[in-house]
């Protein structure tokens, strides 16, 4: 028996919004410790990893490890039926071929349930090595989304250059060039408005706008985002999912032909 109840059901809705453009289908691996999803986008350029800790749920039970393969378009359609303040419960029997989503209004006066067919997905799981990144940039997630959107007007790629002076995002194309520099904030009223740069060595890497823009669909999940970079390894774009977990996107840097 698997059952996970989340009072802050809107978090699950936002997680789906954050992955559904990148992934058509994916497996949710349910274990005693929580729920994880790891999947590559169709073109195998990026990797998404979602981790939801068991302790983060208001009720969590997983008697046996369970892999739930889901069509994310269908899952998203079902979660759209939940109101933002609904309590969401996911439920499945051991070895089941369906999962049930239960939505309860805060007053408990309306309860809906939707059953969805599970899929058998043969997906490769990739081992992600522990990495000490040369640069870790924390910035407001809305700012990052804005930068990606604005620079996408100029070209297909964004160059992210991190140095001790700050971080510079650049793009170049037919209409010209764009540069956005962010310095580390010296003092801020709110922690989520801060730009914090932890740097061991300067790093400059180039990434595809298309993917960065898809990653920013996670913006509603968290006021801050972190970008981790090292030379010649994938960028990690990480958003926390409330207090219950995090979503990480990995994107290989572009290389010169």
């Amino acid at each position: 028996m698997f059952e996970a109840r989340l009072v802050q059901g809107s978090l699950l809705k936002k997680v789906l919004d954050a992955i559904k453009e990148l992934l058509n289908e994916a497996s949710w691996d349910c274990a005693d410790s929580g729920i994880q999803l790891q999947a590559m986008d169709n073109s195998h350029v990026s990797l998404v990893s979602v981790n939801l800790r068991a302790e983060g749920f208001d009720k969590y039970r997983c008697d046996r490890n369970l892999i739930m393969g889901m069509d994310l378009t269908s899952m998203s359609k079902i979660l759209k039926c939940a109101a933002n303040d609904d309590i969401i419960t996911m439920k499945a029997q051991d070895n089941a071929d369906t999962v049930t989503f239960i939505f309860e209004s805060p007053s408990q006066e309306k309860v809906s349930d939707y059953e969805m067919k599970l899929m058998n997905l043969d997906q490769d799981h990739l081992g992600i090595p522990e990495t000490d990144y040369a640069c870790v940039i924390k910035l407001p997630s809305g700012e990052f989304a804005r930068i990606c959107r604005d620079l996408s007007n100029f070209g297909e790629s964004i160059v992210i250059a991190c140095s001790k002076e700050g971080v510079k995002f650049s793009a170049a194309g037919d209409i010209g060039t764009g540069n956005i520099k962010l310095a580390q904030t010296s003092s801020v009223d709110k922690e989520e408005e801060a730009v914090i740069i932890e740097m061991q060595e300067p790093v400059t890497l180039t990434f595809a706008c298309r993917y960065l823009n898809m990653f920013t669909k996670a913006t509603p999940l968290s006021p801050q985002v972190s970008l981790s970079m090292s030379p010649d390894v994938p960028l990690v774009v990480e958003y926390s999912i409330g207090d219950i977990g995090q979503i990480q996107y990995f994107l290989a840097p572009k290389i010169d032909d």
């Binding site: 073109s43 799981h125 081992g127 992600i128 390894v233």
Partner: peptide, 14 residues
């Protein structure tokens, strides 16, 4: 021109 490598190049199957 730059090209986009696959994420497979960096992470091995576990």
């Amino acid at each position: 021109m730059s090209k986009q490598p696959s994420i497979f190049k960096f992470f091995s199957k576990s």
